[in-house]
Design a binder for these strands. Sequence first.
DNA 1: ATTGGGAAAATTTTT
DNA 2: TTTTCCCAAT
Length: 732
Amino acid sequence: MTQHLLLAQLNDKQQQAVAAHERHMLVLAGAGSGKTRVLVHRIAWLLQEQRVSPHSIMAVTFTNKAAAEMRGRIEQILGNSVRAMWIGTFHGLTHRLLRAHFMDAKLPQNFQILDSDDQQRLLKRIIKNKNLDEKRWPAKQAQWFINAKKDEGLRPHHLDGFDFNERTFKEIYEEYQIACDRAGLVDFAELLLRAHELLRDNAIVREHYQRRFRHILVDEFQDTNSIQYAWIKLLSGVSNSAEATNYVTIVGDDDQSIYGWRGAKVENIQQFLRDYPNVLTIRLEQNYRSSNNILQAANQVIANNNDRLGKELWTEDGSGDAIDLYAAFNEMDEARYVAGQIEQWHEQGHALQDVAILYRSNAQSRVIEEALLHARIPYRIYGGLRFFDRQEVKDALAYLRLLASRNDDAALERVINTPTRGIGDRTLAIIRDGARARGTTMWDAAKQLVQEKILSGRAGNSVQAFLDLIDRLEDDVSDFPLGRQVDTIIKSSGLMAMYQAEKGEKAETRVENLKELVNACDNFHAFDEQNNDENMTPLNSFLAHAALESGDEQAEEHQDAVQLMTLHSAKGLEFPLVFMVGVEEGLFPSQQSLDESGRLAEERRLMYVGMTRAMQKLVISYAEQRRIYGQEFFHKVSRFVGEMPPETLHHVRLQSRTQHHSPALGRFHSGASHETFEQTGYELGQRVRHPKFGEGTVLNYEGVGAQSRIQINFDGVGSKWLMTAYARLERC
DNA sequence: ATTGGGAAAATTTTT
DNA sequence: TTTTCCCAAT
């Protein structure tokens, strides 16, 4: 292998991938194997060694964070900016394409992006209009249906509508699409679908980009859905009849595919091997993150899945600490244990930000938070409401959208009476009906209705005042820089005054957020250069940014704090100390995944992802009793724990909980009672039979030996405390 | 137009 | 249990 600076710090496999000459490549990159590094070095290699122009490279990622990181690292290596290179998310890149070719894509120049919240509102309205029962046909489900179809590349006319359900959803889909087209609105899935159709149907555009992007690289390929892969195929010139004319590299890990439930197709990796000729496959299996124990356990767990491409992580590191396994009594006990362990870690001089607590579902965070609060351990939760998704911010953005495009019905609906200006449901319904009858947008309908005096009197005046307000705002503001535009708009529209008039902490935050939005606009100039295409006004560019790139706001907070997040959002991250809580049958794997076949494998991959986040130490815990939605459950430890090699596990002995908590609670557990409890041969949740009361479930246990009592919830009879010594219980 | 009560639902999430 | 949503009453 050529000795080269770009290859100096890479292992053999990584070097091979970076310097490959093959046209098509699959890099199977295990967790912690230096995937991003390879991708970054590969692009730098192409630019520096192969003398490829940045103009000819397109790199696709799934998050904006990943895209930004990649661009930053490449520029760092090269020492100059690579603006001409297209790096971005599927949605970001397709959006850019549609802006540049809005006419060919049959879109208005000022088309706006509909986020999923807006999409749901619009669907709700359509369902109402069709006089469908909203209980029977929830907007949520319609949204799911439509997006799933679009992800498959299907338009309404592709659906046969044989079954009744499908037929109704198809009709909703049809009307929804008409509404979007009329208002110049494009939802997330539509960005991909339109971009696909654009390339498919327009040979000139397609060939132009095929010529341009000689090198296409796709990250996290296991997360691509059908339409995304189809788009890549079109762009790279591969089709049934022709070979690809371009170089395509895909990077991914089938074992980390955890988004199948939202349309991602792991099979795309295998399909890639069939669609593209002579693909070079490189496995990155050396792990630079975790200790050997953790890797062995993770390898064993994932080995239980079928249809893997096959990959085994290894490390040059030592075996490291065993994985701690803690069996908690209930979720409170579990949370307390985690908090206690973190205290110890912190006392040993380690940073709190090096600790992550991972759970299957967001609802689990509450108990943990309480325990951390109690222990005065600072924490940060990932996955809250994003800045651009907040109500007040969306209100302000809706005004901006209306300035950009009067046809944006979704925006108009949002702000026509926010703040209240005497346009109630009645008036709004008239405008909606008028728009539908005339086949126009609501803005045009409102204008006409006032002119024709169909809307008159107070309602007419209010509507006219609103129309004037928007027109006047555009006049007043159009020459201002973005920040000042927004500042003026939120003030002149009365939005700011409305939130200032509200009282309470929440209202104060809202006012702050509005000010922050002005700030965001001011700062936006700095990095809008990549969006600075033809047909991209600064306003449209900012609105697209707000819709597509609102994700990474929650990253910075300087305090040293423990990180709480779902297993899904932990993908791609790493932490020296990782806690996985609630590792129980029914929770993880989740009940729903057990009910549907095929979902279990994905849960196992999720387990694998979680485990491989840990660098030094992994702690797994489960609760024998857990309260969920107000109901007590008795779960068994997750099957995934049983799949780990026993020697990698360390069963944490029960701590004397009573030290910290009132002995009066001995009813539940008085220190040693757990072991005694086990000696009796009964477990919480176990099914037993009593000669008189029949069958029931063991709920609780207290006391030792002859004095011990046991609580059982008998089916039909209810819960009873019995003396263990006298109750003639049988296991069943 | 706002508030409050009652019913129903309640994984995982990016764009 | 908690949250969210809808309708009804003010």
